[in-house]
Amino acid sequence: MADVEKAIDASPTPIAGVLQMSMVLRDSALLQTSYDDWRDVQACKVKGTWNLHNALSGGKLDFFILLASLAGAVGHPGQANYASANSFLDSFVQYRHGLGLPCSAIDLGGMEGIGCLSDKPVKLLVYRPSGLNMLQEQQLMDAIELGIRYSLPADNMRPTSSHSAFTNMSHFAVGMNSTKPISDPMNRVIFKGDPRISVYNNIVFADQKNVSESKEEGVRELLREVEANPELLREPDTVNRASWEIGRTLFGFLLLPEENLDVSMSLTSIGVDSLVSIEIRNWWRRTLGMDIMVLEVLSDGTIEGLGKLIVLSLQKKYGIEGEGGDDTKESESAN
């Protein structure tokens, strides 16, 4: 407390606002967390916030922003101590508002380029594949701007609708979106099944569905043409079209830039594994109306191999045989 008061007294001008950004991490399983590790993590956020609150109680502040973490809202494995400290920050907003004082809490997700993860590339390699959206510096600045705007207790409580609970605009989270579709089995973000963000997930799912349907329009057009004229399955260009369309679908599953699509790419090189193969099987059944084994997907080798398998499946469905079908089979065997 003495150090905080000393720093305030040393300020050449009156202090107009506070940014409480302190943090200490001592990650471990709860049963292995020592008292010292619990206390060290708690102290900077809990005791530090009380010190700032008490030391500045006599001044007039425009804002009092507490940088918290999503861990306080949704938890995180190995961070019970950190989650608890951040939950305190979230509740402290209500305490200060009850006194008529400004306060806001921002629950941040993982930051990239700045902050504690900026020098931990291994951690980023773990987080990115899980689907966690890494925040950028500008998003933090935008969040702080909102925190300042809604820091005062007046008019920060408002109903979400005429028949539901109130929401506090002074407490919000940033970074609860994902880089992978919610339905993707490779999406391992902790909060994807949290009912508190179900409305947001439904909005995202609808957007993803629209994008997915637009990407699948090429496949549907090909299927309509084949249904009208099954003899198209004898033409080499049909394999090219099928390969391109399954490639677009795969790149959509894996969130890869479509401009890098090359149908000669191997499936393993773009990240197709058993989990993605299950998604391909489901897509195959849903879009083509035919079943395929996961092992068939994995054994085809390349995107073009899957395109040829689509044509072979359609040839079987429509009873198309002959020179074109034999050529396709020979090419498939060569792969």
Results as ranks from 00 to 15, higher is better:
Ala71Tyr: 05
Glu332Phe: 14
Val226Gly: 10
Met176Pro: 13
Asp273Gln: 05
Ser11Lys: 02
Glu112Trp: 12
Leu309Arg: 15
Asp62Arg: 11
Gly75Ile: 03
Leu99Lys: 11
Ala29Thr: 06
Lys120Ile: 07
Leu288Ser: 07
Gly322Leu: 01
Ser243Thr: 08
Trp244Asp: 11
Gln138Phe: 07
Glu258Arg: 07
Lys60Glu: 13
Gln32Thr: 09
Asp3Lys: 12
Val41Gly: 12
Ala80Trp: 03
Leu52Asp: 09
Asp40Gln: 15
Tyr318Ser: 06
Val204Phe: 01
Tyr200Glu: 12
Ile144Asp: 10
Lys60Phe: 00
Met157Ile: 07
Glu5Met: 05
Lys209Phe: 09
Met290Arg: 14
Leu99His: 08
Asp194Trp: 11
Arg96Glu: 01
Asp327Gln: 15
Ala242Lys: 09
Ser57Phe: 11
Ile303Arg: 09
Leu117Val: 06
Ser331Pro: 00
Ser22Asp: 09
Ala228Pro: 11
Asn86Trp: 04
Ala7His: 01
Val74Lys: 02
Thr167Lys: 12
Gly59Lys: 12
Lys192Ala: 04
Glu323Tyr: 07
Val174Trp: 03
Gly325Cys: 15
Gly147Glu: 02
Ser87Ala: 14
Leu146Gly: 11
Leu101Glu: 07
Ala334Ser: 14
Ser266Cys: 13
Lys60Ala: 06
Ser11Met: 11
Phe205Met: 15
Gly113Cys: 14
Pro257Gln: 04
Leu222Val: 01
Val93Lys: 04
Arg128Ile: 13
Ala154Gly: 13
Ala68Asp: 02
Val199Cys: 10
Arg220Ala: 04
Ile280Lys: 00
Val239Cys: 05
Phe253His: 10
Ser178Pro: 01
Thr287Val: 12
Ser28Ile: 00
Ile270Asp: 11
Asn260Glu: 14
Leu306Gln: 00
Met134Val: 10
Pro12Asp: 05
Ser212Asp: 09
Gln315Tyr: 00
Met1Arg: 05
Ser299Asp: 13
Val24Trp: 01
Ala55Val: 01
Lys180His: 10
Tyr35His: 12
Gly301Gln: 03
Leu295Val: 13
Glu304Asn: 06
Thr13Pro: 14
Asp142Ile: 04
Ile190Thr: 07
Leu288Gln: 06
Arg220Met: 08
Asn201Tyr: 11
Ala242Phe: 07
Ala68His: 00
Gly147Ser: 04
Val239Trp: 05
Gly109Arg: 03
Met176Lys: 02
Ser69Gly: 02
Leu101Arg: 10
Asn201Cys: 14
Val126Pro: 00
Leu19Thr: 09
Val24Ser: 04
Gly218Val: 03
Ser91Gln: 06
Gln20Ser: 13
Glu296Ile: 00
Thr167Gln: 14
Leu256Lys: 04
Leu250Met: 09
Asn51Met: 09
Ala29Met: 15
Glu323Leu: 14
Leu255Arg: 15
Val211Arg: 15
Tyr95Pro: 11
Val18Arg: 02
Tyr318Glu: 01
Glu332Leu: 12
Ala71Cys: 14
Lys120Ser: 05
Ala334Arg: 13
Val46Cys: 08
His171Ile: 01
Ser313Cys: 04
Lys317Gly: 01
Asp142Glu: 14
Asn187Ser: 09
Gly58Gln: 04
Pro185Gln: 02
Leu70Thr: 06
Ser274Glu: 02
